[in-house]
Design a protein around this nucleic acid. Structure first.
Lengths: 370, 370
DNA sequence: CGAAGCAATGTATGCGCTTACACTCGCAAG
DNA sequence: CTTGCGAGTGTAAGCGCATACATTGCTTCG
């Protein structure tokens, strides 16, 4: 934490000019081996660490790409965590009998975790560092602009920023929109076959399992993902000349609790639908919770399906039939798209649509499979 | 993507000097309201985005903190993902009958996901951006130095970088070591009560459940976490004047597959131990897999316990008894520690030790609880 | 033996901002 | 009518690096 050495210090120590130091660090082959070794020796001796800011400023690129997304709702009511005093705090272990009913207070955002992991992975492979930013409420605009000012390229999860905002920012840095519908813009898009997946799943329920009365549980009116899934649901019906309401009748909020609530409402009906098709896995798990409490067996009395393919659905009982999104792949491909755009800025805008997998599991399948 | 406007452009457009523009953006109150509005108008009109690099260089702080960790093993053999052509690729949906036995090829690193989430959360709350970097093999040193050069502070997951490396880097930026044992260094540490937790769990198995012969499954010789957990295991034995081997006899590799392998070996013994205490959850789940295949019931014939408290253990059947680490809290507290260090650089090195929770669930408890 | 060419290194400029300091007012106090 | 002062703004000096261009010292070839 003393004053950090700079190129000048290293140059002086090694008896060369700063240009040579810079070259040793960026294009070592342009320097005579003897000098190179000497410079590297000085670097090590002084503990020199190049300033990313100065480097970025001079070179006009930073080697950092950004990932911006909307924060979790739960972030709002997040308490402070006391940072203990200067001395080591006690630590310790508490024993808890963890019965299944204990409320799960943890904030889960499994969807995004996987996307993030894909981004990390691919950033590493491509030699970029990854700057992760979450926006929340009114600071969101500020945050995303700030990020745009310090990265070479930006990936934005659909819905995290307004289109105008993105359009403006895209004049500074290339932007890849993730998991959103392709708009009439010039941005690069990487998305997922939401409609296709939901359509295929719905078709399976109708054609193969003979279900006729299906209910759709939506997560949020604003979510473009949800809208596309609903479209797929409707499409499968229309193709078979079956009718659906104009808009989803059951509304959750993408959370397990929301699913439970919707499930409870459903269980009070005098007649259950054959299948409940949920816009995501968490809500589906919630519906299954409600069914279990009401003594309704899944899938015999009620088929429940989800969307996303999170781990929790693979580990639940019964395991959840779902449409698995390639979330990690989404992250990876987005980074690749960005890398490509950076390499060739004048390519026309591209739009990649990733295929999904409909995973048939016990929450929908006849028990023979189990 | 045209040439980006700079302070000069904004200043000219608003008819002020660049200093005023800068002030409007950093300390708005120092500027007369009328001028401020005019400048903000120009900013909006030009779509000005300040350069993070220039800002960081001039101000000597960037508002970015870094999180560095060792990459996943699976990163090595990671195939390429084809980025489709310029036109929209087909997308689509494939239907798959997902029987339970299907291999789980996904790379899980649930542990780190939660720490990362905690860091994100708290960074956002503290007004920092988070730069995430993974190191892998020989590029690790390069990566971490690079990060050190562009952040105000750095959090390093224990074991991701050598102590000398950290000592050197800490002369440039404050460093917080996460989840590692406190060394005799001047770095700030945030860690978790590994030994305490394992000791409490082991004591419970011995005292309350009457287990006498316990086996410990270690994950890696190099892991300081593992070493501490082993210490706790031994401690509980020593306190009761029971003996243990000098070093763990069963070795997994922290993966579920590794746990399965160890489990298979165990199942071939003529006499099973009463309990298998695993150094993490994934291995414990693998051991349970092996037990199920061998027809051994958990917990009646064999008690299995894990460590970490990942979701998969909460959702498994039977649910896994484990020691839950406050991983998200670990991330959050680390950010706080760093923020505090940045605010008051000359504070003495601090060491925070977070408490853990021993979660008793059905993989260890008599079935009456179930 | 001299000119040309090349490899290796040095010199000097500027990237876009922050900030110490200088400066200009307008106004209250002397 | 000065002087002093503070609010508001401008001037200018870097921050630490990359890089275009200049320079140097060799080698090579005519």
């Amino acid at each position: 934490m003393t004053k950090a050495p700079t190129v000048y210090d290293v140059a002086h120590h090694a008896g060369v000019s700063i240009a040579t130091v810079s070259r040793v660090l960026s294009r070592p082959d342009d320097v005579k081996p003897a000098t190179r070794e000497r410079v590297l020796g000085s670097v090590a001796a002084l503990g020199y660490v190049p300033s990313g800011a100065a480097r970025g400023l001079a070179a006009r690129r930073t080697g950092v790409i950004g990932l911006f997304f909307q924060g979790l709702d739960a972030m709002d009511d997040l308490g402070d965590i006391a940072l203990e005093g200067d001395e080591a705090s006690a630590g310790g272990a508490r024993i808890i009998r963890d019965v299944p009913e204990r409320a799960d207070t943890r904030v889960l955002n499994l969807y995004f975790d996987e996307v993030l992991r894909g981004c990390e992975l691919e950033s590493w492979r491509s030699g970029f560092s990854l700057l992760v930013g979450v926006g929340r409420g009114d600071t969101a605009t500020q945050t995303v602009r700030d990020m745009a000012g310090r990265v070479d390229g930006l990936m934005v999860l659909a819905g995290s920023a307004s289109e105008e905002e993105l359009a403006q920012l895209s004049r500074h840095v290339p932007i890849v929109v993730m998991a959103g519908p392709r708009r009439g813009d010039e941005l690069d898009h990487v998305s997922v076959s939401n409609a296709e997946g939901m359509r295929a799943l719905t078709a399976h329920l109708i054609d193969d399992l003979g279900a006729r009365d299906l209910e759709y549980v939506s997560g949020s009116v604003d979510s473009p993902d949800d809208a596309e899934r609903w479209d797929g649901f409707v499409m499968a019906h229309v193709e078979r000349e079956l009718s659906t309401p104009a808009t989803p009748t059951l509304r959750g909020d993408f959370t397990r609790d929301g699913g439970r609530r919707v499930g409870r409402e459903l269980m009070q009906r005098e007649r259950l639908p054959r299948a409940v098709v949920c816009a995501n896995d968490q809500m589906a798990l919630g519906v299954i919770d409600a069914a279990r409490i009401a003594g309704v067996t899944v899938p015999d009395e009620l088929i429940v399906t989800g969307f996303d393919g999170i781990d929790a659905g693979r580990l639940s009982t019964p395991r959840l039939t779902t449409v698995r999104q390639p979330m990690e792949t989404l992250g990876r491909v987005s980074v690749q798209a960005l890398a490509r755009r950076l390499a060739e800025p004048k390519l026309p805008a591209m739009s990649v649509r990733l295929p999904v997998e409909v995973l048939l599991r016990e929450s929908s399948e006849p028990s023979s499979t189990s």
